[in-house]
Design a protein around this nucleic acid. Sequence first.
DNA 1: GTTTATTCCTACCACTGGTATGTTTGCCGG
DNA 2: CCGGCAAACATACCAGTGGTAGGAATAAAC
Lengths: 195, 195
Amino acid sequence: MARRTAEDAEKTRLAILASAQAHFARDGFKASLADIVSDAGVTKGALFHHFPNKLALFQQVWTDLQKGMDEEARAEARKVIDPNDPYSQLLAGAKVYLKWAARPEYYRIVLFEGPSVLGMQGWYESDRDIGQRNVRRSMEFMADKRCFPRSRINVYSVLVQSVLNGFGFALGKGEDGLTPDVAHEAFEIMLRNLR
Amino acid sequence: MARRTAEDAEKTRLAILASAQAHFARDGFKASLADIVSDAGVTKGALFHHFPNKLALFQQVWTDLQKGMDEEARAEARKVIDPNDPYSQLLAGAKVYLKWAARPEYYRIVLFEGPSVLGMQGWYESDRDIGQRNVRRSMEFMADKRCFPRSRINVYSVLVQSVLNGFGFALGKGEDGLTPDVAHEAFEIMLRNLR
DNA sequence: GTTTATTCCTACCACTGGTATGTTTGCCGG
DNA sequence: CCGGCAAACATACCAGTGGTAGGAATAAAC
């Protein structure tokens, strides 16, 4: 086979991404490219035409998952009654995030493998770009409402983000008798009582 | 070279472990065995005589680091005035943990690479064995003191563990203007106000 | 209708973790 | 004191990995 329609090319690209997501979700980053292209019905030539290397492929899978979660979270946050209430928006977004964390692909690829694969800079930057901004805005909002001194905005941002991450992990793992609702309730209590 | 004294053997074993820790700390699990044995002054034959495979080598490095941190944390917890106060013991242990998290080898090997390398079961189990037990004991203690209902012991254990993990991460990463002291203060405030 | 550039395949490469086998020699029973 | 076993390595090698080079076919632009 050779030159196809741009539409066909997009199809193979998506097939590669789908297969890659499945394999990364099951075997982590160590999933072999041979298996990925085999299940996608193409050869390595196609893969390396669409992606410069394995890491870029993983990054794309990672980004797609994050984007999906982020869009749903934003949509849910927009439904909050008061559009100028970052606190409620954070709670709404957190609810969505905790649900996604229970999904095996999101759990394994984004939360589990993401850090070590993308490296500390890459992962932390992307993570901060997507989640931390909302968290930080909410912390500033709470500080303005005299919940706690502004000097603690920084630490509390890290703290809140950590709790969301950790709950995501625990939910993704499945045990601990933890459900998204229980986690969300505890999250809110903790948040409300920050001083 | 060939058969040496048992003492000599232990020396090469330690040399391999030291070199492995250095390389794993810098390059993560993808550090090559060739480089590790080269810097240790031995060959791969020696490595595979002492360790069954690369993962076992990593596990040993991981365990040694965890053991070092755990021993120091326990020692510090034992210095607490009231020996029947898990709350204060947790705070003391947390202080030690946060300090270790700022050390690059501990950060990279235990916190960063550990999860994806050892896998969810291996990492979570070991992590829980070392840290979670103390956290859980403290949560039960606080529940008994009517800080919050016993039904929340489980969630809060996960929550507290997550905060420690996340602070460790942020400290290890170095930025955010975060110091062990600031993190520890925020940790205590959060803990004290759990309902 | 010729050219061009995209899309993909095949063949190949350097390197990796891991193995099989060989070699030296401390050590222990007789 | 000494023969043999096994510990403690070294050497040579292998299957599989991510990645590359080059070519073939053809959709698309002119």
